[in-house]
């Protein structure tokens, strides 16, 4: 039952964050960029449930918009990087030999390249933005997914039904599409869920450094940076975005764990 608990808790946390983010696209309690410096750092009230930030902007509204930014960047980056990585992994597995060797060494190489440094380079070349942050995070994900996909695919390629397909004269591309992908989907989905948690942290770190979301866009990492000098006078300014990051990362982590346990046939059997 343990895995089911983490699955449920993870799904609830992720669902809450995603819902808050989705709602913020259509509606927030206050306009996001509306400043009111005479009312800055206000305590929670009926009008501002979590109070206001250093420029008098509604904190709850900005946290909600931060959820939209963080989740969309993280999920988008993992989908993009994961998609490319999976494609490369499948290619390597289907062709084998030198192609496989070359692609996997390329992955090793990109693992050696610090992700933050790459993001800073992107920001220097194209200007800091959420899009460039997303691209940098996607880049980190390519080799991760290439490895997972190739490892899983290699196990499927030697199964009897694949050999039968090849004997029947089907091409490698067709076999990859019709037989390999469905059989490696589960580990990839689990991997993606866990990588989203990492991507949320990465986005927060980059925005904290000023390389991600630019004003007046809201981002949890940016809010943390802004709260830094206010720790003495208004500690909650840092606590709220910190809690959001924690909850989102924890949520995706638990969800990933739960999915993995659920998808693992051995565990299912044992518990049955």
């Amino acid at each position: 039952m343990r895995h089911r608990a983490s699955l449920i808790l993870g799904a609830v946390l992720v669902g809450l964050m995603a819902a808050a983010g989705l709602v913020s696209l259509a509606w927030t309690p206050w306009p996001l960029a509306e400043i009111d410096v005479l009312n800055k750092l206000a305590a929670p009230s009926a009008a501002h449930p979590l109070g206001t930030d250093g420029l008098g902007r509604d904190l709850l509204s900005r946290l909600m918009a931060g959820a939209a930014n963080s989740l969309s960047v993280a999920a988008g980056a993992v989908l993009l990087g994961g998609g490319i990585g999976t494609g490369l992994g499948l290619l390597a597995s289907a062709w084998g030999g030198r192609v496989e060797e070359a692609l996997m060494r390329l992955c090793d190489l990109s693992f050696a390249f610090p992700a933050l440094l790459f993001a800073i380079m992107l920001a220097a070349a194209f200007g800091p933005s959420l899009l460039n942050t997303g691209l940098a995070i996607a880049f980190i994900n390519v080799p991760i997914f290439a490895r997972v996909a190739r490892g899983a695919a290699n196990q499927v390629w030697v199964r009897d039904f694949v050999l039968a397909g090849r004997a029947a004269g089907r091409g490698r591309a067709a076999i990859s599409r019709d037989h390999i992908v469905p059989n490696i989907a589960a580990p990839l989905i689990v991997q993606a869920t866990i990588e989203i948690a990492t991507a949320i942290l990465a986005e927060a770190a980059l925005s904290y450094l000023g390389l991600g979301a630019q004003p007046p866009a809201a981002s949890w990492g940016r809010m943390l940076a802004e709260a830094q000098t206010l720790l003495w006078v208004a500690p909650m300014q840092a606590v709220w975005p910190g809690l959001c990051i924690t909850a989102a990362v924890l949520g995706f982590g638990l969800l990933g764990d739960g999915l993995r346990d659920w998808a693992d046939p051995r565990l299912v059997r044992r518990q049955a």
């Binding site: 960029a33 410096v37 420029l55 000023g210 004003p215 007046p216 000098t229």
Partner: peptide, 27 residues
């Protein structure tokens, strides 16, 4: 990247937005 500049920038961005001008702030 000085506090007086980055902070003023966000307020000026909001003030110009009220006058109908979209300002992109880059630190």
């Amino acid at each position: 990247p000085f506090p007086y500049a980055t902070r003023s920038a966000e307020i000026i961005q909001a003030e110009l937005a009220q006058a109908g001008v979209a300002v992109s702030v880059e630190t």
